[in-house]
């Protein structure tokens, strides 16, 4: 359904001085600077997938999304989405996609979301009976009730975001791009929106989710693509991501005596609150769990302890630093 190969994007920027003199000079002589935002990435996404697209700020993530949504032309490479090349024949292509940008609203501030929906009904030429059915279904699913008839400015952030989803999905797009869709929302609203996404995904809609909220990714994505420095550094299932850097555990220890960690490979201190309180990450391929605990207990006498799998946050952090 989505096929991307050797996608590249190079920006040429001109350095502009900060001072008045430099600005004046730059009018005549401009220093060229090329930035390789995307360095030839390839991937395929099947119909009905829900893919998390991750990367630190400036990694080339939003450039890629802009190219996939037809907003930006690449320098080179191929993209085929449902038979379209996004940046060619934009109008035809975008009839088949939807997008929710957490920080760029499609709703109209002073009038109810329902009026804005009507606008998109006309823009996408959705038949009235189909339109009414879709709206009432989605309104129910998101528990919005009569809120869609209240002026947008009177709605809470969460309510507005739910309406953004309806706005973006009225025309039943087969592919939907989500950019930070839960930013700034409370726990309950987040949960509702995640449910909605999963529900739509079950019905066959393909989602591509870019976000910095790893909880979103954990709850939604079955597959994760991580991009850094313009290259794909990880592209596989969510489950495999957890063990990407080997099987690791986070151990939180409180001890009676001053903590003396055993000298052994595969033990890394994450944080130390005091001489008696420490959090370490151990790599199970290098040191066995029971061995580690035994050694620490002999030296320092453990009074309390918790063992957890390594959080996604730390795996991603490591990936971002590759």
């Amino acid at each position: 359904m989505i096929h991307v190969s050797e996608l590249k994007k190079t920006f040429t920027t001109y350095e502009r001085g900060g001072t008045f003199r430099e600005a004046l000079i730059s009018l005549f002589v401009r220093k060229k600077k090329t930035v390789n935002a995307v360095k030839g990435i390839s991937f395929d996404i099947e119909e009905g997938e829900l893919v998390g697209f991750l990367g630190p700020n400036g990694a080339g993530k939003s450039t890629t999304i802009k190219i996939l949504t037809g907003i930006m032309h690449p320098t080179s490479g191929e993209v085929d989405i449902m038979g379209y090349t996004p940046w060619k024949n934009r109008r035809k292509y975008v009839e088949n996609i939807g997008a929710v940008f957490g920080q760029k609203s499609q709703l109209l501030w002073d009038i109810p979301p329902l009026d804005a929906f009507n606008l998109n009904q006309s823009i996408y030429r959705i038949p009235s009976n189909e339109f009414k059915k879709t709206v009432s279904e989605m309104v129910e699913m998101l528990a919005l009730k009569d809120l869609v008839k209240k002026p947008t400015r009177q709605l809470s952030l969460g309510e507005r975001m739910k309406c953004e989803f309806i706005m973006a999905m009225l025309h039943k797009p087969r592919v939907v791009f989500l950019d930070e869709p839960t930013i700034g929302l409370d726990v309950i609203a987040k949960e509702k929106i995640r449910e909605f996404i999963l529900e739509q995904n079950k019905k066959g809609t393909t989602f591509i989710l870019t976000t910095h909220d790893l909880e979103d990714v954990e709850h939604l994505a079955k597959r994760v693509i991580v991009i850094n420095h313009g290259e794909i550094v990880y592209d596989d299932s969510m489950d495999k991501l957890r063990n990407y850097f080997g099987e690791k555990k986070t151990i939180h220890l409180t001890t009676r005596k001053k903590i003396m960690l055993p000298k052994h490979e595969g033990i890394a201190v994450r944080s130390q609150l005091s001489d008696y309180d420490i959090e370490v990450v151990i790599d199970l391929s290098q040191i066995k769990l029971n061995e580690f605990i035994k050694k620490v207990n002999e030296e320092s006498v453990i009074s309390d302890m918790s063992i957890e799998g390594l959080e996604l946050e730390y795996i991603i952090k490591d990936l971002y630093q590759v």
């Binding site: 109209l108 501030w109 002073d110 009507n118 006309s122 823009i123 030429r125 959705i126 038949p127």
Partner: peptide, 27 residues
Amino acid sequence: GIVSRRSDTPPIFKAVISATYKENLAY
């Protein structure tokens, strides 16, 4: 040829005019 099948959809210009009118009513 799509237009005739979807003739019950108001044309874009009508929808834009009415939405903008309502939007500006607030002011």
